[in-house]
Design a protein around this nucleic acid. Structure first.
Lengths: 258, 258
DNA sequence: CCAGAAATTAACCCGTTGGATAATTACTGT
DNA sequence: ACAGTAATTATCCAACGGGTTAATTTCTGG
């Protein structure tokens, strides 16, 4: 969504207490949706509280119904907004002019960083899947928002195979899902995994290591080469990083999980 | 858990109406936990209804509190049971005597099939992560149940590298997470992905294709070979399958997602 | 066979929560 | 300036849902 003056701080709730109050329909709607996004992401559909959303948005509960609708309408609006946002960002990624391996690397990095920057997106997807996509199915809007990534991957892979960079040609859909998988699962399940492994998977070194592993894994599969730290200081899309498989079978190291 | 006479049918609820009723503490407890598992998996913590669990278990609501505890206790018991179950099955997998590549394949297949056979497990994990592992953290029981897979992977990879089967040695933890990722994400998010791609990812051919892709991807990365359908009719752990990357860049094919 | 404990049922309680109704206040065009 | 509409506030409420209390029934050991 485009910036709106009353959009930044999440609880500038009272900033509107100028004498009595002033009108701001669009701003109100945005604050409601933002608050709803946080609430649904944090508590799921059933766990979300309409009153909390209202409070967080600095609004009266009645406003939610006035501007968006009931709880489910609210949820769907949030979900659609989330898809719109990622699709919009996806479209900004231009891979056409890159060497195929680097294009794939960029793709992985973008996806990974998007997930890191938008944890609510992960939560919302999980919530929606818990609901078996009951709401998505009704949303013609989302169904018409196709990700450009599948086609991007198709052309990149084709190009890579033609140029000899890649040994095999994977199904773009499968590869797309795999790239999403590797990052999504790690981040989405970081809480339980951190407990199981007895170490914090969200601290920077762990995340850096994960990104390097994902890139190395996918590129190794595509190129057939063990992809030793290939250069190109290329300041990655959002975060430069090491890119090798972590040292050879790192022995029991720090992990306390046998 | 071990079989108990009054365990099989889920709604044999009334089978206990022998005149008035008869006692069956253990059976009751099991039915309660099974019902709770389904309920929590289907609706999450906040969405779960204590009354529904009771009804499904063929019990009075009071029984839940008598045999297990309040809603949260119930949830934690379910979660711990889920971890116990998967850990138990994991221990039955013996990879030591297999060739490294085949061992990895078996591992992937096992994980994949376990997820398919236990959809509630996926849902529970998602639910717990939505709660930021709030309950897991309190469970000393689960924290002490280490997966044997990480060590299995470590030895297999080491062996594979020594024998020359594998070109690179990956960090076992990363590889473990990656293998889980590839299957987990696909299945856990199949509902939304199916809507987005406009095709049912859960029908058999799609699932078979996914398994083949996962195996090919991981093995290609490890061996450096494009892993063309390597043989060994090896009747996979639970489901034999094709194992190549799907045909070369399958053109727009059936997919309606550009 | 019977007393006490264990298991189970039946009924109720009360805070929460989504949603609705109605009254108030701020804008807008004319 | 003012009428009409849009935006917002202030209350209310009925149902839902987790948890509890108390009465009932079955089982077991002596």
């Amino acid at each position: 969504m485009h910036d709106h003056p009353s959009d930044r701080s999440t609880d500038l709730a009272k900033a509107k207490r100028t004498l009595k109050w002033q009108r701001d329909p669009e701003g109100m709607r945005l604050r409601i949706l933002e608050a709803a996004k946080q609430e649904f992401a944090a508590h799921g559909i059933a766990g979300a509280r309409v009153d909390r959303i209202a409070a967080e948005a600095g609004a009266n509960k009645r406003m939610l119904y006035y501007h968006v609708g009931n709880k489910e309408d609210l949820y769907l609006a949030v979900l659609e907004g989330a898809y719109e946002k990622i699709r919009a960002e996806e479209r900004t990624l231009d891979l056409e002019h890159l060497d195929p391996p680097e294009a794939i690397e960029r793709l992985i990095e973008f996806t990974w960083n998007y997930f890191i920057r938008n944890p609510e997106f992960l939560a919302l997807l999980n919530t929606e899947n818990l609901a078996r996509a009951r709401h998505l199915k009704r949303s013609t809007k989302v169904k018409s928002m196709h990700s450009p990534f599948v086609e991007m991957i198709r052309t990149v892979v084709t190009r890579g195979v033609a140029r000899g960079d890649f040994k095999v040609a994977m199904d773009p859909v499968q590869l797309y899902i795999s790239i999403a998988s590797l990052g999504f699962f790690y981040l989405s399940n970081s809480a339980t995994l951190s407990v199981i492994f007895g170490r914090d998977l969200l601290k920077k070194p762990a995340k850096d290591e994960r990104l390097a592993h994902m890139v190395a894994l996918v590129l190794a599969a595509l190129t057939g080469k063990s992809t030793a730290s290939f250069g190109k200081g290329s300041a990655a899309v959002e975060k430069p990083n090491v890119r090798t498989f972590s040292r050879v079978v790192p022995a029991k190291a720090g992990t306390h999980n046998p």
